[in-house]
Amino acid sequence: MGNPIVFFILALIAIASALGMLASRNAIYSALFLVLNFVTIAVLYLVLNAPFMAVVQVTVYAGAIMVLFLFVIMLLGAERSGSRTEGLRDWEWILAGFLGAVLIIVFLTNLVMNPSAVGDTAPFIDTSPAALGLRLFEAYVFPFELTGVLLLAAMIGVVVLGRRKKMAQLEKGGNDA
């Protein structure tokens, strides 16, 4: 499942970029760190014999979604909305950090205690887009259709939410009353 040296370099970059996103005061930096993170993971997908998913990860996540994020941040001019953690109470900090630590420690401990055999890996399988497409349309036709409906609903929702004209009318009516 990949060369250890390659994995560790990629893992380090992924963790570092994630922490960068978490710590950046500026939302734009956060977004850019996140893009880096996504790209790193896309590379990991390649290592894991999932070339199609890697491409999708780059185009949809790193491309489309993050562009949307950046677009909204710039549209609202909200890149510097306050400090990272202002208004947080101590107990919130402590509890969140504690829980995060517990989560990581518990899992890692578990992994260390019950390690998987290193070579216990299945042989390579056909992961070409054609094979993926066949699987998708044979076994997962119904979820696929549902996803289509979900996307349509999301699209309508976004259009409705984004109608400025309607809001203006409502506010105007509100003032009248």
Partner: peptide, 20 residues
């Protein structure tokens, strides 16, 4: 919202810990 999210997270951690 973050307090509610914290609650959800707490529950998640506890559940995971239980399963493990």
């Amino acid at each position: 919202a973050r307090n509610y999210a914290l609650g959800v997270f707490l529950g998640t951690v506890l559940l995971l810990a239980y399963f493990i």
